[in-house]
């Protein structure tokens, strides 16, 4: 793990520049290439959805108000992006230590068909225990995604299906205001400062 970190840091210059360029491109294209998507995520207080967490308890956006919030969209059948992001999030939470206890940290499943609360619970037991899995009826997941201006799409693949989905990590202040996004290919060194900003 330590070696990998060193490798990542070593690649930081190039990757950082690339991520920055990609990030810029993404922000620009939000306003031009994707009509209807050129909007920032709503404040948490203006979102509307009824989901269930991996312990089977109901969760609504209002439950998040009062604590800073970090949200990622994914699914447990995802082989690459989701375990990678959940590993990253677990590392960030470990680095932040007890301070991170003040965060709401949620994985919202874009594959509620397969990701029941039980399935999410088993999957998330492999990562930091502070990450809460959310799932529910598809229309409710769609309402959640709409609030974040996130997208997901089911794709048939080899007799099965996979999901395309927004891969960034969304950050919100304790009062629910949108703060920033940690882009999937962004230099990971920028992640902790972004998270610390919503903790202050």
């Amino acid at each position: 793990m330590r070696t990998r970190r060193a490798v990542i840091l070593g690649l930081g210059g190039t990757a950082g520049a690339l991520a920055f360029t990609l990030g810029l491109g993404w922000w620009k294209s939000r306003n031009s290439a994707q009509p209807g998507a050129g909007l920032l995520p709503l404040p948490v207080a203006d979102m509307s959805f009824n989901l269930s967490n991996h312990r089977g308890n109901p969760v609504q956006p209002a439950d998040w108000i009062g604590r800073p919030t970090m949200v990622f969209f994914g699914f447990t059948w995802c082989p690459d992006v989701c375990p990678t992001t959940l590993s990253d999030i677990s590392d960030w939470l470990a680095d932040l230590g007890p301070e991170a206890d003040r965060l709401n940290v949620a994985l919202i499943s874009v594959d509620p068909e397969r990701d029941t609360p039980t399935v999410l619970a088993e999957y998330l037991s492999n990562f930091d225990r502070r990450i809460v899995g959310l799932t529910g009826q598809l229309p409710e997941v769609e309402k959640a995604a709409a609030g974040f201006r996130a997208k997901f799409e089911k794709l048939p693949r080899d007799g099965d299906y996979t999901m395309n989905h927004t891969a960034g990590v969304f950050l919100f202040h304790a009062d629910g205001r949108f703060a920033s996004i940690i882009d999937f290919h962004e230099d990971r060194r920028f992640a902790l400062p972004k998270i610390r900003r919503i903790l202050t």
């Binding site: 939000r30 927004t166 891969a167 999937f184």
Partner: peptide
């Protein structure tokens, strides 16, 4: 049964494989 080569691509913030 079905090993394949894939690439994770993120376009406009959306990941696909």
């Amino acid at each position: 049964g079905m090993p394949m080569l894939h690439e994770t691509v993120v376009t406009n913030g959306i990941a696909s494989m």
